[in-house]
């Protein structure tokens, strides 16, 4: 790739939900550019067939019988939850939806 702009760095940081400090933007810009140059090499690969490999396994997915298994106690659910109110997991206001 020719160049990677500051805006593009901020865009991928947004997609990945990672805040970047002002002084980090340039550092990551240089590093990401290097990695993007690496992956660009895929464009030079010729003569491959169209079939795609999603996973190396050859078998089909076994299906699970629709019967109920063990569930967690609500107290266990809350063990690792950083913020909760009553039975609920709490997050800052969800604006968008």
């Amino acid at each position: 790739m020719d160049k990677l702009s500051r805006e593009e760095v901020l865009h991928v940081a947004h997609l990945a939900r990672i805040n970047l400090e002002e002084d980090e933007i340039e550092k990551f810009r240089v590093q990401l550019k290097k990695l993007m140059d690496d992956i660009d090499k895929i464009k030079d690969v010729k003569d491959y067939d169209e079939e795609m490999l999603i996973s190396p396994v050859d078998h089909n997915a076994p299906l699970r019988e629709d019967s109920e298994g063990k569930m967690l106690e609500y107290k266990t659910v809350m063990k690792n939850v950083p913020h909760s109110t009553g039975n609920f997991v709490e997050v800052p206001v969800m604006l968008n939806e």
Binding site: M71, L72, V77
Partner: peptide, 23 residues
């Protein structure tokens, strides 16, 4: 269904919050 799409916890409506879950 009786259970969820990708796990075997119960597909129930109207239960107490966070009591029909697994990891």
């Amino acid at each position: 269904t009786k259970t969820k799409m990708f796990s075997n916890s119960a597909n129930h409506y109207g239960k107490m919050a966070n009591t029909c879950t697994n990891v």
